[in-house]
Design a protein around this nucleic acid. Sequence first.
DNA 1: CTTTAAATGCAACCTTGTTGCATTTAAAGT
DNA 2: ACTTTAAATGCAACAAGGTTGCATTTAAAG
Lengths: 117, 117
Amino acid sequence: MKVLEELTGTGQALSHTELEATFSKVDRITLYRVLKDFEEAGIVHKIIGPDGVTRFAVCRHNCPDETHTEDHVHFNCTNCHKVFCLEHTHNPDLRLPTGFKVSGIQILVQGICKHCS
Amino acid sequence: MKVLEELTGTGQALSHTELEATFSKVDRITLYRVLKDFEEAGIVHKIIGPDGVTRFAVCRHNCPDETHTEDHVHFNCTNCHKVFCLEHTHNPDLRLPTGFKVSGIQILVQGICKHCS
DNA sequence: CTTTAAATGCAACCTTGTTGCATTTAAAGT
DNA sequence: ACTTTAAATGCAACAAGGTTGCATTTAAAG
């Protein structure tokens, strides 16, 4: 699929609207279905930004297919507004109050990215 | 405002839909405006859940008015589906790759809450 | 070349959220 | 107490994001 190529190529998480613009010939519903299938297959994962916009990024080497756990940090640049995975910045251990059981952590860091600074 | 009482009382983050159900006499647009005003005034803060649903929670003692920074972790119970602030679980220090400047961190932990376990 | 299933497109619909305008409510001035 | 003014509420309409059902095309298998 060309959608997968696009996602792999850019290195950033793309929103549905952005993908829609790239593949203007393709119907937006088809795009929804393709992305949904990719997500269920563990090929891409969804990132919900601080703006509430959902974006999609390809799962890299350290994303286990079974659990589909994303053990890495997401970054949102306040300058270029891009969202991407920091694959090598793993989630830290959090000590929660007693009685809480953790099954997943989602971290979204905002700031200025490498390219913009 | 009764909306503020409700938010303070429940101790959890409430979605717009939930508040709409509670205050069925009030128009939903009024609710949108009230919540927007509260947010801008630094009285409540918005939490965007892993489901993409935005919820609202009152800012407690350790939420400085000026920066409106939420230096605490949010928890989403996979059993009762509630979302609430873990006021005393602060954001950890993250070491990002060189060139990245951090201005804010949002952490959402999923698991089983104290009450459900 | 036919049969069958998968992939695509279209129409319609729902939810969430915003904006403009009219109306009500309430506060302030004389 | 009555008028003037501003704030708060409600209504209609709209836009973006997302889902579902059904018809049609594409392509794979017999």
